[in-house]
Design a protein around this nucleic acid. Structure first.
Lengths: 110, 110
DNA sequence: TTTGATTATCAATTTATATTGATATGATAG
DNA sequence: CTATCATATCAATATAAATTGATAATCAAA
């Protein structure tokens, strides 16, 4: 027996909505990594440069660097360059945006 | 020059906290998939059985089934079996738990 | 203007995850 | 029972992402 799928749900057909979900999924995967979560945690209320992150997390410098690049690719971070050092801190506006998107998604399940 | 890492941040040493973050990261990856987000979206306020999900999303039955298994592995869903059909709906308590964990994490960045 | 410090990049590898095709399982009606 | 519907499983493949090792780029001080 065939199922009637004529009336598809909004989240499957609404262009705006599906695009928002693609962005949301991407955001979730970007912060859904143990090492990136730790990086973000360290950057919670101070800015740190790469070697400090590397040292604190016990992870190779290039690994930290590549995770920072990934976080940066989503504009989750900002850099302040001082001499040789690159100080990273969080980009609160972008977090705010995805936080509210996520909140409105998750509140449907509470 | 060596960096002093004696005083590591809480999120790097606190056992309870780091474990919570491992769970959080896992949760984020589990819902951070486009198809699983769509499934959750469809299950927002009704229960559906596998073929309905498959039909609505235009995805193969076994693919839906495996995504449901993944969501289920994290207790995000509940099943109600009626005859041959398995109706899935969301497990609100678990969402609530991770939602609050996530909220308290993200609020640091607003 | 070379040296050391700091960070980024890159190719190679490993690990994780998603998808597909085929098949098995379980339930129900006849 | 047997046929069919609904779902799950499984091996194989494909895709994506993380990690490593080596090296390049960048900057500042000596």
């Amino acid at each position: 027996m065939k199922i009637n799928c004529e009336a598809k749900a909004d989240c499957c057909v609404n262009k705006k909505l599906t695009e928002a979900y693609v962005g949301l999924a991407k955001f979730l995967r970007i912060i859904g990594d143990n090492n990136r979560l730790k990086i973000l945690c360290l950057l919670k209320d101070e800015e740190l440069y790469v070697d400090e992150l590397s040292c604190n997390l016990g992870l190779a410098q290039n690994l930290i660097s590549s995770h920072l690049k990934i976080l940066n690719s989503f504009n989750l971070l900002k850099i302040r360059k001082v001499g040789k050092k690159n100080y990273y801190h969080t980009n609160r506006e972008v977090f705010k945006k995805y936080n509210s998107l996520l909140t409105s998604f998750l509140k449907n399940y509470e």
